[in-house]
Design a protein around this nucleic acid. Structure first.
Lengths: 145, 145
DNA sequence: GCGTCGGGTCAATCATATTGACATTATATT
DNA sequence: AATATAATGTCAATATGATTGACCCGACGC
């Protein structure tokens, strides 16, 4: 059992986590809405941008969604010429994805709001807070390194 | 413009934020699924538990959802006798919500997994990291104090 | 009694997600 | 060459969820 007072402290953290994540996604969500897109589209753009030549299956694993759930938004992005898809040279079964110039623009706009947001926060809270915050989120996500 | 190297650093933080939030909600999501409930139900249970006698409108504002979106899950919780609803004494137009004994049990179970998760993380990263992490998420959420 | 307020519901629509099944194309195996 | 397997794509059926708009009720203030 955890001390009740301690539990209340941690509940504060839980609430802040929730509200912070919501605030963090609010701006890109708004931009996406104007284009009739959703958060999934942003995630696709983000991870394709960060992992050029990623395969469809690789993207599925990162996003932890079914291929059917990925199919529609991915096709939309390809149709809008924001993402391109082409067979891999070494094995044509694999299709590789990457952002087009327009896709890079939109991705930069969407993630740009979040980068500015975080940069402003870290600027205010300081270097030490940034480093410690990273340690904690990395630990929550259970990622080594 | 922000320095590209700096941008990449912050992108790391963005990814960690995303993966950590996903990992953080995974356990309660699993428990909820077994009961045919979703994340909204957890949020309702959480905030009703934290704010006894909260009104329906108060809950709407905290959750930032429409009353139609709240209606179904809230009715389900009331039907399952996890949440009770009754007119306020001072003004019978207002309905006040609170958790039943069963509701408290489930809420404790759901949030309990998250409390344990965070307690373990903070135990590992230390007091300083906890304090600094809180400062950052509070700033991201744009909450004073 | 009348206007207003908090709350509840219905309808129509749209989006999203899920499972299962099946098709296609390309590579690997024998 | 025939066959099995891998990566991807798609269709169908279903379920869920959210949104907007409209409308209703009961309770309160005046």
């Amino acid at each position: 059992m955890i001390d009740p007072t301690r539990q209340d402290e941690i509940r504060k953290s839980i609430e802040l986590f929730y509200f912070s994540y919501r605030a963090f996604t609010a701006q890109p969500d708004q931009i996406l809405e104007q284009r009739g897109l959703g958060r999934v589209h942003h995630r696709i753009l983000y991870f394709v941008g960060r992992n050029p030549d990623i395969t469809v299956n690789g993207l599925l694993k990162i996003l932890s969604v079914s291929k059917q759930a990925l199919n529609t938004p991915l096709r939309q992005l390809i149709g809008m010429k924001l993402v391109s898809i082409r067979p891999a040279l070494h094995d044509a079964r694999f299709k590789q994805l990457h952002l087009t110039a327009d896709g890079e623009k939109l991705e930069a706009q969407l993630t740009g709001t979040q980068i500015s947001h975080l940069a402003a926060v870290f600027g205010k809270t300081g270097r030490n807070a940034e480093v410690e915050w990273q340690k904690v989120v990395r630990e929550i996500a259970d990622i080594d390194g």
